[in-house]
Design a protein around this nucleic acid. Structure first.
Lengths: 240, 240
DNA sequence: CAGTGGTCTAGACCACGGA
DNA sequence: CCGTGGTCTAGACCACTGC
């Protein structure tokens, strides 16, 4: 374990345990250097991380202070944003059963805006088009519309789509998923969605439009996911 | 201007101008050190920032690559998250006129969950309770329910509430707003909201529940804001 | 003006990717 | 194996807060 990670973990624990209570000052950087036997820049890096995660606030000339964090909702997602991982793994780690219903799995020419996001030349190349309902413990949770270039993600099978696409990409293809750019909005379900999800026309859904990237900067996925209320909640920490 | 900021700005410009095209490799850290005449750790810090903002991706052993960013929507908010500022200032900077309709401005005992978020002892101390509609260019944009301890924010006047509360806190009180923890959800409007905002019962609104903090770690505001579709859009970059 | 956090350096060493 | 980015150090100097 890296030194700054160890410092982060220890300070998180102390803040959660109330050893450093909310709105009280933490030891100074110099003191923490002595305490953990590391250099100033390492403590600084640990503090950057704690600030990003919403555990502390810092004021030059004054000090570092603990903050109280919002209660974690059981269904909160991609908040802590320390990870990009598939829905399935995300929930599997909490011991929840994720299943899928596939409504479409085909190969198409992508619409213009999708081609643009995926950096494909117009009318050059094809994409998978996937429509899936994701169920949590057997209950409909979200509906997902995905485009991926077949050149980047070859040989995707229906079995992968019914299980976990992210698993196929990372484990079978050995590709490295790096990051995602997302937009969140509130929307109403389409008629198809009302039928698929069992909700009325005025039901509020959280829509996430997203482009995901590999570690070489190539976009490999454009998707729109619409979440039912119970599982659609996004937490975030904004700083400065 | 700080050295790493100058590097960030210059690289952003080069990426936006296509000098470093999406999915292509940037110069190595060593090359950038020479190019900008700064040390490795300064380039590193600049890269951290560019990664956080979604401009680049990095892979140890391989290199740093440019990414294409999602188009900026005119109404995208607190994405770039480089700033916490009030709605008014936020939109004023884009040349838009923000006005308010105040439905309630009173002093109350906070509900239990609000008292907990604001770290107030139960039945000890009072809060302002503010209900405001925020209008953009004369059109209803969002409805806002706010609690703030009167001890922390003394002498708040109706005129401030009708103008900008953030302005009063930062300019008049000289307090330092540091950060905010938020939760996003999709919801339907209440009956009051349907009347105030001129929408039907099934209209999808983006709700933001939020606790905001001063730079000494003290929470000073609990609020729930519900946005109409046109102005309620949140952009975000998730990494690793 | 003493004490805090922030920036920056030059350089050692490590971890990982890819040919 | 070499080249990449990542971590870490000791220490100089700066910027801000608050008494």
């Amino acid at each position: 374990m890296l030194k700054y990670e160890a410092v982060v973990d220890d300070l998180k624990k102390k803040i959660n345990d109330g050893k450093y209570a909310p709105s009280t000052q933490l030891p100074t950087i110099t003191q923490l250097c002595l305490q953990y036997g590391v250099s100033k820049i390492t403590i600084k890096k640990a503090m950057d991380e704690l600030e990003r995660q919403g555990f502390v606030t810092r004021q030059r000339g004054s000090g570092t202070y603990a903050k109280q964090r919002l209660d974690e909702n059981e269904f909160a997602r991609w908040t802590e944003n320390d990870h990009i991982k598939g829905t399935k793994r995300d929930y599997a780690e909490r011991g929840m059963r994720v299943t899928s219903v596939v409504y479409d799995f085909s190969v198409v020419e992508p619409p213009a805006h999708v081609a643009r996001y995926l950096q494909m030349d117009p009318h050059e190349g094809f994409c998978y088009h996937i429509v899936r309902r994701r169920d949590l413990e057997g209950e409909p949770s979200s509906i997902e519309y995905t485009y991926m270039p077949i050149d980047l993600i070859p040989n995707l099978k229906r079995a992968n789509v019914e299980d976990s696409i992210y698993h196929y990409i990372t484990e079978d293809l050995g590709l490295n998923i790096d990051s995602a750019h997302s937009i969140f909005r509130a929307v109403n379900p389409t008629e198809d969605e009302q039928r698929w999800m069992g909700v009325g026309p005025g039901y509020p859904m959280l829509e996430v439009e997203q482009v995901a990237f590999l570690s070489n900067g190539e976009p490999f996925e454009y998707s729109i996911t619409r979440h039912l209320k119970i599982t659609g909640e996004v937490h975030s920490v904004r700083v400065h």
